[in-house]
Nucleic acid binder design. Structure first.
Lengths: 334, 334
DNA sequence: GACCAGCTTTGGACCGTTCCAGAACGTACG
DNA sequence: CGTACGTTCTGGAACGGTCCAAAGCTGGTC
């Protein structure tokens, strides 16, 4: 007993399959009574169009593939929300795939998506550099969202302005009176941008000598370890700017373990304004990247690129804001 | 310039399209030199099979759709990992869709998946009851993972044993010496099971009168508010069993706000062993549902059901374990 | 050399849609 | 009444694969 096809519907409604197709695609050129008949037949049979057949014939899928770096890191949820709403408004559906899960299996997600012939590809977050993405991007309109790399010929990049974000955070700490400030640095271009911006601002305030940087990864563990290193310096910083919220939580634990009270003895700033930072018990001061907006704009970029695949690559940056919560205050001595 | 088809490959390799198809599907019946020629042509042209065409002809997609309840709640990540690895081993790919994002848009994900003619459907977590899922489940093999509902005719359920999990947690608290114990109750069947099990264990120990229950939702906010209510009772509990980790974090905040130290003045137990509970700064004692295992078994159930769609619905329960961390200890008075 | 079996290879039908050219059916007009 | 033109409807050809029956090769045997 196979699912009904458009021909079954046609037969039942007493019309040709072409007319059914017309009705289903919302044509105006159909007499109301026939339309009724077709819709009734669709309903009675529980007909659902076959997406494969449709996309084979239409040569497009109205589907975009979203490559996630790793679902364990919750920063992208808002972004997806923005992405999805804008795509949905334009009749595109979104399919997700998590790189982390599949990478372990040695599977290449871009392959899945290119076989599916998605109309577009969105890479969310910094993906490990891969030849696969490069070739995929050459064949299907692609946008990178919430990351700054890779930079490829016809690939747009939509992300928060990391330079500005790190500046806001650093200036906030300096304005509070902090002088000796540490930074937990992250990976890749994003990591480099935030770090450089931190250093620049410190220099602008004549505080270069009081800036300390330790490398973390993007995890809590990494943040913890980097903070332990920062705080074991002879003169320890009174504030730390973390690369992201996760490593900021690690910093929080490190502070606690060393008997430092946050924010009294140590101010902390995270980055991304994830829901983790909003947990009351953590309540991190953090930089908000306007992720929802990043998502929406990424969707728009993709739509534009689908319309004109050859236009030059763009970089769109959103303006971050500082979200001041409970982990920052003036340093104790002041 | 369209992507190459199997016919382009055939022409280039100087064979028929049928032979190309044979090679690509790994037939043994092909002479090595032809195989080489075909593979070379595939490589030179960058040929990728068209999934739509293939599934149209094969009448299956080798794809299963995964419906997520809400990505904001991180408990399912492990589950997906288990799911994915088992499915992958059996040549199935997994497509994700988040219900929360799309529900707002009024879009019905089961519709998307049925149009794609996925070979199977996995509902992860408690989804809002929907007619759509019921009809979808009638047409395509479906498994519910990490939730206990809905119960539908040919739908398997794979989840942690909530009764046992709540028992482990409650007994742990009682063994530590707690007598007056509160519970933050959750929604749905899962919520009811955990709650009832909590009450049963309390009764078994003659502590029925000292058990207090407040309803939370599944969020931090809900946990916070429920805890405030629990702690404002004239005789306040010395321990709280939360429905999940998120609401446990809310409880943590409530305790902090009321000047109670955890675990000295108040012991807390979460549920799900999410990465949030593993954050060093929170370090929640929690119940581990063996999510990875739930995922693997759900995949197996789906595979079995695809093989025999009419077999009766099964309920598979995994055995939870207690993960004792930093939020439980004997009560202060003891 | 004819015949057969077994291995390789092939052409064509089919999967369920969309799209397009043209047929059928009014309807208005000279 | 014949013609022209709009509107509605239809059959058949794609789309890019898989599958199957049958054809083409090989080599061995009598």
């Amino acid at each position: 007993m196979r699912p009904p096809t458009i021909r079954d519907v046609a037969e039942r409604a007493g019309v040709s399959k072409s007319l059914v197709s017309l009705v289903l695609r919302g044509s105006e050129q159909v007499r109301p009574e026939k339309r009724e008949a077709v819709l009734a037949a669709v309903d009675e049979l529980g007909y659902r169009p076959n997406a494969a057949a449709r996309s084979l014939s239409e040569r497009r899928t109205r589907t975009v593939g979203v490559l996630l770096h790793d679902m364990r890191n919750p920063w992208f949820v808002e972004l997806l929300d923005g992405l999805n709403s804008r795509l949905h408004d334009n009749g595109l559906r979104m399919l997700l795939a998590d790189g982390h899960l599949n990478r372990r299996l040695g599977e290449d997600l871009t392959r899945t998506f290119t076989e599916l012939r998605v109309d577009g590809l969105i890479a969310v977050g910094t993906l490990p550099p891969s030849e696969a993405l490069r070739t995929a991007a050459a064949q299907v309109p692609t946008v990178v969202a919430g990351a700054r790399e890779p930079t490829l010929p016809h690939v747009d990049v939509v992300a928060g302005d990391d330079q500005l974000g790190a500046r806001l955070a650093t200036e906030h700490l300096i304005a509070l009176g902090h002088r000796r400030i540490g930074h937990i640095a992250g990976d890749g271009v994003v990591g480099a941008l935030r770090r450089r911006s931190f250093e620049t601002v410190m220099r602008e305030h004549g505080l270069s000598d009081l800036a300390a940087v330790e490398r973390g990864d993007l995890t809590e563990e990494g943040g913890y370890r980097a903070t332990v290193r920062l705080l074991s310096a002879p003169e320890r910083p009174t504030a730390v700017l973390a690369f992201n919220d996760m490593s900021c939580v690690g910093a929080l634990s490190a502070a606690e373990e060393l008997g430092l009270s946050v924010p009294r003895d140590l101010s902390l700033v995270g980055y991304d304004n994830t829901y983790v930072s909003r947990l009351r018990h953590l309540w991190l001061t953090t930089v908000d990247n306007a992720s929802h907006d990043v998502g929406r704009r990424a969707a728009q970029s993709l739509l534009d690129r689908i319309a004109d695949p050859t236009r030059p690559a763009q970089v769109v940056l959103t303006t971050p804001t500082l979200e001041i919560r409970g982990t920052t205050s003036p340093p104790a001595g002041r």
